[in-house]
Nucleic acid binder design. Structure first.
Lengths: 195, 195
DNA sequence: AACAGTTATATCGCTCCGATACATCGGGAA
DNA sequence: TTCCCGATGTATCGGAGCGATATAACTGTT
């Protein structure tokens, strides 16, 4: 099973319902994942080309139309999933390995949770949680060990970082609890935090 | 004034006091900035080379010692700032432009705040704050505009993102307040959040 | 004496990003 | 009406970054 990078997964996910232009893919992704994680054209177009070459998507668009009527219609290329692409997406949605809860992958995976089965969702949330716990220890160890190097700003930066990770963990705990208490009901997904 | 990338600035900052080996630079940076922002060797060594070529640092280390005693001593290269490097660091510490509060640059700049004068500190904190405010609006606009596309997980991801940025802003507000109330006292720096 | 872990330098292939260029289209101001 | 602006749209280039990997000496533990 060829490994799928985050960009590929995100695009497979976004093309799941309708074919879209490169430009639209970028906008949607930016809207769903937030203004951070904003994908640049320098990654998008080469990425699309790679996916076409791999047979995951196909360009079903108006070609440049070399010799054409009055104003030569410009290329507007809509990309859609191939069968292989759809298969790959399913495989990837069933995958609950480390690649699903890594820093850069987790939010993409999370944004696709309504198409992921309950058990996998739980595994991913727990994986992410334990990953962050490791970090928590690293940082607080580091904080302790540097007790006597007193640079107030550096210390504050660290304290703040620690706090952020702690809150992230709390968020995950909430989500995990929600998932757990939803078991026994439906096994399809659509009810995260009540807040 | 040649532009200085974040990596260069971070290294200039860390070499400010003592010469260090590449390996040590990496460890220190990881400790001061947290386990995220962990610099890879694939960036570090080429980066050091660039800085040597630019004359900002120099390699004052035991050379490979081609023909030597028994067990050929391995190269252990300590890098130290040149005068040009020291000058560049000062220039950069006085710079309070957008490049100081960008996503990837802000924490490096912040970690050097005790070597930054009070006015510049304030300008950077305010710049960072306004950058985050823009994002805040983008995200909450996006949240409003997507009211009827109801994917609970996507919405939750967004809500959480919004919350994070809000907290980041609150943190900055606290720091700004501290800086402001410290004016009139000493103008050198070492007293951030009382918390 | 063997093994594991840390210190240490270095490169390869690939991906990613920012900047930039170009072209079309719709709408509102002049 | 014309003109220009902003959004839509595709595309590439150079450089910087990363993950994986190779090599090797030193240090401490069993």
């Amino acid at each position: 099973m060829a490994k799928t990078d985050v960009l590929t997964l995100a695009i497979l996910g976004i093309l799941r319902e309708q074919p879209l232009h490169g430009y639209q893919i970028r906008k949607r992704l930016g809207a769903e994942l937030g203004p951070f994680r904003a994908l640049s054209y320098g990654s998008l177009y080469p990425g699309l080309r790679r996916m076409v070459d791999a047979g995951l998507i196909e360009a079903s668009g108006e070609e440049p139309t070399g010799a054409s009527p009055a104003s030569s219609r410009r290329a507007r290329i809509a990309y859609s999933l191939t069968d292989a692409g759809r298969t790959r997406l399913s495989e990837e949605l069933a995958n609950a390995g480390a690649s699903s809860w890594d820093d850069d992958a987790f939010d993409v995976r999370f944004s696709l949770f309504s198409h992921t089965d309950a058990a996998t969702r739980l595994r991913i949330l727990e994986g992410r949680r334990s990953r962050l716990s490791e970090r928590l220890e690293e940082v607080s160890d580091g904080l302790k060990r540097m007790h006597e190097r007193h640079d107030a700003y550096t210390a504050e930066l660290q304290r703040h970082g620690l706090e952020q990770v702690e809150r992230e963990v709390a968020w995950l705990d909430q989500l995990i609890e929600n998932e757990r208490s939803a078991r026994g009901g439906e096994n399809n997904g659509s009810a995260p935090a009540d807040h």
